[in-house]
């Protein structure tokens, strides 16, 4: 099923369908690439050779991506510094002050047992960031090994790996995740692991097509012609140049992983209470009878989830333009 891809834009091995990063969005669509917020003409010129300063300059110019990067950075800092920033112990209850609206004592109000919503939201960043970053680290590693091997070794190995990728892509990722988390039992590291081992196919395809492109680049062929070893070429020339694809896939993947964690928590398969997580907070507040009565209970985690996801998506988008991962058209 992958053949169609190389046949559409066959000259550079870029894949129209297959190279799109597939973001496993629970119930949602794979996030498309394609030009979006910033179609900077400069970004369209081939940019594979020098990933350094020029990329950064382009990325910086992508305002939404910069904003997204700042938000994610803040969230990561929040997660790390949670015990210092949080005004209260996130699990400290106060039954005499339940469901309090926002006030100067509790900026985001309190929940059903009087816990401080702000503190819980701050600690919840830990779960989302952990799941986002670690799950993506796992699946990028898998994706790189499989994608690079497929492209670099080629032949039968390529066919086998890519067929396997196709097979995994037939499974609804979220369903596999649900089942495996069900087997293993809910815990944050199980969630990281499960999202990690099912998330890789999209990224693997992207990496494969990138490596295919690189393999045909002049400087790689030149290196080959002067007798450089395969391993040397792979580590010196190929791997560094897949960084672009990897970061794009990674940042889009973080968005997907955060959404998956929220979905799992919503179905009661997320992190184990009373550990605060945005998904759990949202689930606790889902009773329609109370949506209008205690809006701060769902607004805070809801906005945070969306903010984190949208920021990761912006970053991915900006990076894609900056690295020109898929030179659309030209």
């Amino acid at each position: 099923m992958t053949d169609r891809t190389s046949s559409i834009n066959n000259d550079d091995g870029t894949v129209v369908g297959g190279s799109q990063p597939i973001v496993p969005v629970p119930g949602g669509a794979p996030l498309p690439t394609g030009p979006t917020l910033g179609d900077y003409s400069e970004a369209k010129s081939s940019a594979i050779h020098s990933p350094g300063s020029r990329t950064w300059r382009r990325f910086r110019r992508h305002k939404l991506a910069m904003a997204g990067a700042i938000v994610i950075l803040l969230l990561v800092l929040t997660a790390i510094l949670a015990p210092i920033i949080a005004p209260y112990d996130p699990n400290a209850i106060n039954l005499m002050a339940i469901n309090q609206p926002p006030s100067s004592d509790h900026w985001f109000g309190t929940d059903a047992v009087g816990r401080d919503t702000l503190s819980r939201a701050i600690f919840g960043a830990r779960v989302s960031m952990t799941v986002g970053f670690f799950a993506v680290a796992i699946y990028l590693s898998i994706a790189f090994v499989l994608g690079a091997t497929a492209a670099y070794v080629g032949g039968k190995v390529d066919t086998i790996i890519m067929r396997f990728t196709d097979i995994i892509m037939c499974f609804p990722t979220f369903v596999l995740t649900l089942i495996l988390v069900g087997f293993l039992g809910p815990s944050i590291w199980n969630i990281v692991f499960v999202i990690g081992i099912f998330g890789w196919p999209g990224a693997a395809r992207m990496i494969r097509s990138q490596v295919l492109t690189l393999r045909n680049q002049e400087y790689v062929q030149a290196a080959q012609s002067i007798g450089a070893g395969r391993w040397y070429i792979l580590t010196k020339h190929i791997a560094p140049n897949t960084l672009g694809v990897m970061t794009v896939a990674g940042s889009l993947g973080i968005a997907g992983a955060i959404l998956q964690e929220a979905g799992l928590s919503f179905l009661g398969l997320g992190v184990v209470a009373p550990t605060p997580s945005w998904g759990v907070m949202l689930n606790d507040a889902r009773d329609p009878a109370l949506l209008a009565t205690f809006p701060w209970l769902w607004l805070v985690p809801g906005i945070l989830i969306s903010l984190a996801v949208i920021s990761s998506n912006f970053i991915g988008d900006g990076l894609r333009d900056a690295y020109d991962v898929k030179g659309h058209g030209d």
Binding site: G18, G27, G28, A29, P30, T173, F174, G263
Partner: peptide, 18 residues
């Protein structure tokens, strides 16, 4: 056509929740 194919697993995953 590709988008159609790619969106199917997501649609099915979503149906579990919805």
């Amino acid at each position: 056509i590709t988008i159609f194919t790619l969106s199917l697993p997501g649609l099915i995953g979503g149906s579990f929740v919805i």
